[in-house]
Amino acid sequence: MIFFQYLVNGLILGGLYACIATGFSLVWGVLSIINILHGSFIVLGAYIGIFSYTMLGIHPFVSVITAGIVLGALGYVVQLGIINRVVAQSVLVTLILTFGLELMMNNAMLVAFTADYRKVILEKSLGVLEIGNVFIAMDRAVATVIAFVLIFLLWLLMRLTSIGRAIVAVRFDREAASLMGIDVKKTYAITFALGGAMAGAAGSLMSVSFPISPLSGPLFLSKAFVICILGGVGSVPGAALGGLIFGMLESFGAVFFGAEYALTLAFIVLIILLLVRPHGLLGVKGF
């Protein structure tokens, strides 16, 4: 049945979107920063995937690790060196700052990689699995599984490690956390690094499925926004859920309205939800 095909498409998209949104959501929730750089982080992650494959023959699924490390390090440095200086200021100031950084990074990527769209074309593709009438592109499916594994790892990290506990403590009460001996600025930098790492990893995963250019950044970013509000800000499971909802909307919405209206559709759903629940969804107000 065609319904199941769209369901599978939605799930596969949703996993990747969830991965895009978790990092963004984490940074928003903990640092109260809307990181406009997030879109370009994803794009750079994708380029690491692409070039590792074309130049060194490393599979993009392996490059997830390098992309995560590189973007994590970049995030750490950016937060520690620049964003921390204004982190306590209003959303106007922090958002514009990350936008300025985004302009720099985007311009650098345009000069380095040009605006052409690129994608990894695997020599040894995993092919297509056919169950009944449902076709599953296995490369994409594996990418989605990896995405969920990454989200799960992040969730574990938040719950089980001392870093995770420090992040949660800072999120709930910066002052108290600081009195307890937690280095707030360093915790911020680590959080931002985790956000960057998730973005980079997501980018590398996406390089197998989607053509990417430096111009793709804003669209990824907009999707991350909407997913975050759908799922609830600052919550890892929330972002995962929001990503899945968004994937489904995009998959099923494409049937009725055409694929080009994915964001519009999600935004309308968001507005309807806001009308029904005036104070926002799962925790928009608090974090």
Partner: peptide, 16 residues
């Protein structure tokens, strides 16, 4: 060629 990048730098400097 680097117009937007430099503009970004300008924005960062202004904000900081």
């Amino acid at each position: 060629q680097l117009h937007t990048g430099i503009l970004g730098l300008l924005i960062v400097i202004l904000i900081l």
